[in-house]
Write a protein that binds this DNA or RNA. Sequence first.
RNA 1: GUGACCGUAGCUCAGUCGGUUAGAGCGCCAGGUUGUGGCCCUGGAGGUCGUGGGUUCAAUUCCCAUCGGUCACCCCA
Length: 427
Amino acid sequence: MADGTAVPGSSAWQYVEDVIRRTMARFHFEEIRTPVLEEEGLIVRGIGEGSDIVTKEMFVVERGNDRYVLRPEVTAPVMRAWLQHHLEQRGGVQRLYYIGPCFRAERPQKGRYRQFHQFGCETIGADDPRADAEVIALMLAVYDAFGITGSRLRINTLGLPEERKQYVEALRAWLTPHKDTLSESGRQRLEKNPLRILDTKDEREQALLRDAPLLIDFTGEQTRERYESVKQCLGDAGIDFIEDFLLVRGLDYYMHTAFELESPDLGAQSALAGGGRYDLLASALGSNCPAPGVGFAAGIERLLLALDAQDATIPEALPPDVFLVALGDDAQRWAFREAQRLRRQGISASFDLKGRSMKAQMREAHRQRAPFTLIAGQTELEAGVVQLKNMDSGEQVQLSADKVPEHISKCLRDARGSEDSAPVSSR
RNA sequence: GUGACCGUAGCUCAGUCGGUUAGAGCGCCAGGUUGUGGCCCUGGAGGUCGUGGGUUCAAUUCCCAUCGGUCACCCCA
């Protein structure tokens, strides 16, 4: 197995996907699936030639003269799909979401894996500030649905490319005299990408930055008004946020609104999710179709870490409705036959495949939390009957073999009817 | 890519200052109950002590390499 590629395949995973999909549906976002394999050019143009992802974190697949990459993120692929399939022709605004694997060739650590899983949404075709606020609200709604608390929403505006460019120069000019205070990587960033210094973890650099110029002061009236509207929408919806003028994003396509959701439970990789507006992505991809967009991306593994840290209860896998216990060779054939009969009628059935003792089969039924067991041996087969045992009460009744499905159905209905706990999931 | 730490049973971990058959708890299997789960009791299976090499009379233990893992830097979900 390649480094950093463990894929959790547990009931927790099922549960997480289920809650995400339901939340997305509540906001009426529609799922879009894009290929895991993408043309290298799309990703390079989309997230920027100089970005860390493109320069050192991509898994490249070559075939003949074609170069593909395993997608490192999903926004650019979604935009490609939107352009390629002319989704703008569907009229209105597209509200889309995705969930699936992404790949980045970084050194694995807590909350960071080479194959990881993202979910996120993209609203394409609207530059209304409410779209930004809606995306943020959706992002928070997901974590809310999981009961995750203590995370912080930070927002900022990255302005327009022109404004940012002026700011970068001003920041560089301001920092250059303080070169000696910067760390080694800080000095490298000063050359390559001064914006990245803003989210430094170095305390001396953080102290220095307190007096540095701010991007917001280099933005024009339009940018500022837009930013104010987004904040106002968030306020109207009662969403708490922290304004952080030092917040930047690592992908080049972002502009205007940028945001990040941080959790104290994650270790060094503290971002649960992040996103922003990317009105110029479509043109970076070579389209002249205007496609203003805004979205967020979130890591499922980090969500699982947060759930774990908060000792959240994750619903267990559903038990079978009935476990069939067989004694002897003839009964083993009966167990398979009977399981199939029940399954065809929508009753979930399970049975032993190792020819184990009755005691072991009963234990297995108990372990699987089956509410009922159906027991048969030579005696029952010859008499055309089976034993139905209620595992909860221990009560056992003998049934005529042909009445089994309807009887079990009835018992299940009775058992479910008497439960006042919330239904976990319908079958 | 850089650095630090860690690899003993399915899992969580003891242990050996180098020395007869490497342990515990949980889990698993079986018996106690000629065909009945949970609790309890008894027994059992399961380990090339990550791998390769070196030092030594002797290595799971020391050394080197390698592979795997973890965390941090960096980066970001």
